[in-house]
Design a protein around this nucleic acid. Structure first.
Length: 794
DNA sequence: AGCTGTGGCAGGGAGG
DNA sequence: CCTCCCTGCCAC
């Protein structure tokens, strides 16, 4: 076999033939369940407890090692996730590896699992032969979407509306369990749309119709925005009330639910996972948050805001406030139906936009679509390695404990207002290092890691080629599909470095992770030296990128490119420096904090101290406008800007959206209270607001608040109020506090002026009219006294 | 149950 | 006041 990844893509079907042993097919039904077709007695057995090892089967050969009794034992074993290790126990020389059976026992009887109330109830049913067998055999190739394009799968979008009953006690405008479902809107990726409602019937009839309709349409994928934490559990509860079986799985099967959590960068969200047999559930809310982890451009993850952000909100879109739903339902239910339909349309557009990379990942990973959408990057890498180990029938190591010690090299050499600017960066720094220096975890005895990385690189290259070819042929849709595919390879490639330093990774290796980063550091330093010896003034370096002012004789883009190319050639084999852009000017403020002014005169700000969404909007606006004025050297403008904001604050002329702050609640209230009590953390304003207001909140939600009162002290944990409590007629925001905040933002301009000039600009105390006369910008501020040495490291 | 990494800045609470 | 420590957010 020449390429591990190609092998997965081309050969893994969860379907085997072994008539002698009675197994006809192994078909993966959903994340946690597979089906085994046993023709011996012309029956189909369902084994929902089995975990993912069968996802690795490309044929039934892995079963050859079993004697029939053992095999039977295996099928019936009920271990939740642990049977994966059962597999290892059977294949393995367990020397120097974990005892698989110990592990199983620990898992099986773990208190933790019991407390979580996760049910692994036996769902082994016996069905008669007939249609079901044929149906599942036909679909066996379809579950992993092998060789399919994204458009070919059948996706259905779903959204529910409930009758908001104002007499019901509720927290924060959320629906209450007592609210009836009045509308279910549905759409699919083939252009079908439908709105079910109970205007002329009952909720019970509506739910019955819905369950039947899902069975009839038979989608592969069910999509919704916040579907795990709202639509599905709500539908399930209401069905329970009416005694309607919530049979939305294939072959009339019921969904299985269990608590799960998902992490987006630093915050994690709890949700109820719905495992719908035979179908995949995709929550577009997760897709959006995952997208925003790298883009950091969204203020809200709500469907309407997201649709506007991506620009597919229809201009005729109907907007309805939840408080008006009950009235509309009575007086103008057509409007409500239109609103509900717009919701599913936007969900469909959102999923079409963001699902592509997950879809193509599914074909490369031995995981289902639903699973791929909710696991992290490290799990994706690990499963590729494990899959190959299973194929080779080799044992699997334990994670090693320890810590990575180094990271990227970051330094600022010059601060101030500088230009012109060239930006260059080492292309795919860490993956390139890993390939060139043959990085491999020590525990990876089969040395699969570098092979997988190389395979991924080559396949990505091919997918890119293919995308280009199709584009040239005018096949736009195909080109886009191949582009999504190459993007999927890129995700995996970039995740491989992080996996090395991942604490729970079974193939982790902190020494190798350190080798990657320290090599990266010396490459960055070499890059600095080479640009400096060519007369460049280096401003800032961060990990793999460098910002510098080229020498005066280099004025055109072409000459800049040649310069970068020249330095690139001096780098070791496999390491290339790319020319990544040119800018008219730059404000170098701090490490990872700067402004760039393009030749189109558009300024971009970078860094948490200049752009953080946790700060007040007025502060961000103030800094942005001020930096624009720095770039145009408009000192009078700066002074006017300061007085403008000062006046606005003093006269309560700002809107709540300007001075409120939004922060994410990362822990549950219970967790917070416990941590404060034990002294593990100190009091925090957002949590205190939530407690004081008596609202229920799930972790991962965001709170918008402001500081009220007239006190002169600092903002403290008991002065916060919810933004919704603010009254325009009686503004009670704390003027003193927000003036202080304005002053703190002014400090960002301090480095660019002499102290006395700074005091003139950012004050209104002057007895004389302000004049910019004699004030000079501090344009070039040397930050570090050439800390790097120019000698070549040996 | 599941979780990719380090580096860096801002802001606030706690305690001296 | 100052320092220390923690959280949150961001760059790469």
């Amino acid at each position: 076999m020449d390429n591990i990844i190609s092998d997965i893509i081309n050969n893994d079907l969860l379907f085997g033939k072994d008539k002698e042993k009675g197994i006809v097919g192994v078909y993966q039904l959903s994340d946690t369940s597979i089906r085994v077709f046993n023709r011996e007695n012309d029956e189909v057995r369902f084994h929902d407890e089995l975990f993912f090892p069968f996802f690795f089967l490309s044929d039934s050969s892995l079963l050859d090692g079993f004697v029939p009794e053992e095999k039977e034992k295996f099928w019936l074993i009920k271990l939740g996730g642990a049977n994966y290790y059962q597999f290892l126990a059977i294949f393995q020389n367990l020397k120097n590896h974990r005892s698989a059976l110990d592990f199983i026992n620990k898992r099986q009887y773990s208190d933790k699992a019991e407390n979580k109330n996760i049910t692994y109830e036996s769902n082994s049913h016996v069905y008669n032969k007939g249609d079901a067998v044929t149906q599942y055999l036909l679909q066996s190739g379809k579950t992993l979407f092998k060789g399919m394009m994204f458009d070919e799968i059948y996706r259905m979008q779903i959204d529910i509306e409930t009758n908001y009953d104002p007499s019901i006690q509720r927290s924060r405008g959320y629906v209450s369990e007592e609210d009836e479902i009045i509308i279910v809107s549905l759409s699919d990726n083939r252009g079908w749309e439908s709105v079910l409602h109970s205007k002329n019937s009952t909720e019970k009839a509506l739910l019955g119709t819905l369950v039947a309709l899902i069975a009839k349409m038979d989608p592969d994928v069910i999509e919704g925005h916040n579907i795990f934490n709202f639509d599905l559990p709500y539908l399930q509860r209401r069905c329970e009330r009416h005694g309607i079986p919530f049979a939305i799985g294939r072959n009339g099967m019921l969904p299985k639910t269990y608590p799960a959590s998902i992490r987006f960068a630093e915050r994690s969200i709890d949700y109820t996972f719905f495992d719908i047999p035979g179908r995949h559930v995709i929550d577009t809310l997760f897709l959006v948050q995952s997208y925003d982890v790298s883009k950091r451009s969204m203020q809200s993850y709500g469907l309407k805001a997201v649709a506007r952000h991506f620009g597919f909100a229809s201009p005729e879109r109907t907007y309805v406030d939840y408080k008006d739903i009950a009235t509309l339902w009575k007086n103008n239910h057509e409007k409500l139906l239109a609103y509900a339909l717009d919701d599913v349309r936007e969900t469909r557009a959102l999923s079409s936009l963001l699902s592509g990379s997950n879809f193509y990942l599914v074909q490369m990973l031995p995981y289902t679509y639903a699973m791929t959408a909710r696991i992290g990057q490290a799990a994706k890498i690990e499963i590729l390695l494990v899959r190959e180990y299973l194929r080779c029938k080799h044992s699997i190591p334990k994670p090693s404990s320890g810590q990575q010690h180094s990271g990227g090299y970051t330094e600022v050499f010059l601060k101030g207002i500088l230009g012109p600017i060239v930006y260059a960066d080492v292309e795919s720094l860490y993956p390139s290092i890993m390939l060139s220096y043959n990085i491999c975890p020590e525990s990876d005895e089969l040395r699969v890691f570098p092979v997988v990385l190389n395979d991924l690189k080559e396949l990505r290259f091919k997918a890119k080629e293919k995308s280009r070819e199709e584009k040239n042929l005018g096949h736009t849709s195909l080109a886009e599909n191949f582009d999504a595919m190459q993007g999927s390879f890129k995700i995996l490639i970039n995740a491989m470095y992080g996996y090395l330093g991942f604490n729970n990774g079974i193939f982790n290796d902190f020494m190798e992770a350190d080798k990657v980063t320290s090599t990266g550091q010396s490459l960055a330093k070499k890059m600095i030296v080479e640009f400096e010896t060519r007369g460049c003034k280096v401003i800032e370096v961060d990990t793999d990128g460098i910002l510098f002012v080229p020498p005066e004789n280099i004025t055109t883009e072409l000459a800049e490119r040649e310069l970068v190319n020249e330095v690139s050639k001096l780098m070791p084999e496999g390491i290339n420096i790319g020319y990544d852009g040119r800018f008219r000017k730059m404000i170098s403020y701090m490490k990872k904090n700067y402004a760039l002014l393009g030749y189109n005169n558009i300024m971009t700000l970078k860094g948490s101290s200049l752009t953080s969404r946790s700060g007040e909007k007025f502060g961000r606006d103030f800094v942005r406008r001020g930096f624009e004025m720095l770039l145009t050297e408009d000192i009078n403008g700066l002074h006017n800007l300061f007085t403008e904001y000062r006046e606005k604050i003093l006269n309560h002329e700002m809107d709540i959206s300007d001075f409120s702050k939004t922060e994410t609640i990362k822990n549950s209230i219970e967790q917070y209270l416990a941590d404060v009590k034990s002294g593990k953390r100190s009091k925090s304003i957002t949590y205190e607001i939530v407690i004081k207001a008596g609202i229920t909140i799930t972790k991962g939600e965001r709170i918008t608040y402001y500081i009220s009162g007239t006190g002169m002290g600092n903002a403290s944990w008991d002065k916060g109020k919810l933004a919704s409590e603010w009254n325009k007629e009686k503004p009670d925001e704390n003027t003193y506090f927000y003036l202080k905040r304005l002053d703190e933002h002014c400090q960002k301009f301090l480095p660019f002026f002499k102290p006395q000039d700074y005091r003139m600009i950012f004050s209104t105390d002057s007895l004389f009219l302000f004049s910019a006369e004699g004030i000079e910008l501090q344009k070039e501020i040397r930050h570090t006294e050439t800390t790097h040495n120019h000698e070549e490291p040996s």
